[in-house]
Each structure stands twice: as structure tokens, then as C-alpha cells.
Simulated assay, not measured.
Amino acid sequence: MVTMLPTHVKDLWPISRALLMQILEDRCSDRFVCERIWERLGYVEADGTWSAGPETPLDWKEAFPEGPQLIAERPASVRLTRSIPKQHKQLLKQQLQFQGYRIGELYPRRTRRATAVNWLLAWLAQLEMPLAEQGPMAPECPVPMDPVAGHPGDLPVA
């Protein structure tokens, strides 16, 4: 049985294996990562501000009337982690063969990016949508020299 797609799905940035790897490899801004999730949670953008919209789940709307900083803020990251259904918790390993970061690469920013990618994979799985191999990519950023600080413009991680 195919799940009904939310009405705003046709307007979303396409998710592909290449894009998810770009996120995992820390080659795009934290803001870009958040925007891909916000739009899938029904947040709408107006004049650079993302606010809960009519399709935003009530629990997200109440906790975060504006798009939450999923990478920078722990409460938002925790909520995102908890919102991944149990049967989809291993999609990073199953679909991307991602084995995690090495000990020297373990920073909250990167682990939260991995959570974001897993959430995006779970979102696709729940809607029974395939993961495309290629698609539009984020504006490319070099891997940050300081992975704790991230890219220019990324918010500090709390």
C-alpha cells in the first residue's frame, strides 16, 4: 500500500544518494541541511524565515514555531532523533553503507548531520519513495578546517 504524499512534496528539494553523502562529508552548510528537513516537516519560508505551516506536525509546531536549528541546538536534534521510527534507525548503514565517523571525527555537528541524513532516509522510506542516485546538490563548501566550528555562517553547536 502506497502512503499518500503530503501536498507540498512536489515542491521539495530532491534527495539523492549523492546529496546525502555531501551532507555526511560536511561539504555543505548546516543551514542547507536544516532547510531540507524543515521543508519536509511543513515549515514554510518567507523573507528568509522558516515558520511552521499548515502541514507541520502539531508537536513540532508547538515545540518549534520557527524552523529549529537541528544541527546547532541539542533539543531540536534530540527530537529529530526520536522522531525516526525504530524500523528505520539503521538506514544509514543499510542504504549508504555508512559505518559512522572515526574517533577523531566525532563531533556533535557531524553526528547530528548523520542523524539528519538518517531522518531524510526514513522520510523517504515512510512514503515508499526511492532514493535517487543523483540529483541537485547543495552549494559546495570545503570541508571545514575546524569541524567543531563548521562552515562560515554555521551557528555554534550547543
Rank of each mutant, 00 (worst) to 15 (best):
R82M: 15
M21Y: 07
P147D: 13
D154K: 05
L155W: 08
E133M: 02
L121E: 09
W13E: 10
D30Y: 00
V157S: 05
A122L: 08
P144N: 08
Q97V: 02
E35S: 09
L131F: 09
A149C: 06
L20V: 04
L155P: 00
E25H: 13
R113G: 08
T111C: 07
V2P: 14
Q69T: 08
L92I: 03
S16Q: 06
Q97K: 13
L41H: 07
K61Y: 02
V148C: 13
G100M: 10
V44H: 00
V157C: 09
D11Q: 13
L41W: 04
C28W: 03
L127C: 06
V78S: 12
A122G: 09
P6F: 01
P54L: 06
P85F: 10
E66C: 10
P14C: 00
A149K: 14
E45L: 03
R112W: 06
E73D: 15
A76C: 13
D11V: 00
L80R: 03
P142N: 09
E140Y: 07
D47L: 02
L12V: 04
M145T: 13
G48R: 06
L5E: 10
P152A: 09
W13F: 13
E25C: 05
D146R: 10
Y107A: 10
L127H: 15
P130W: 07
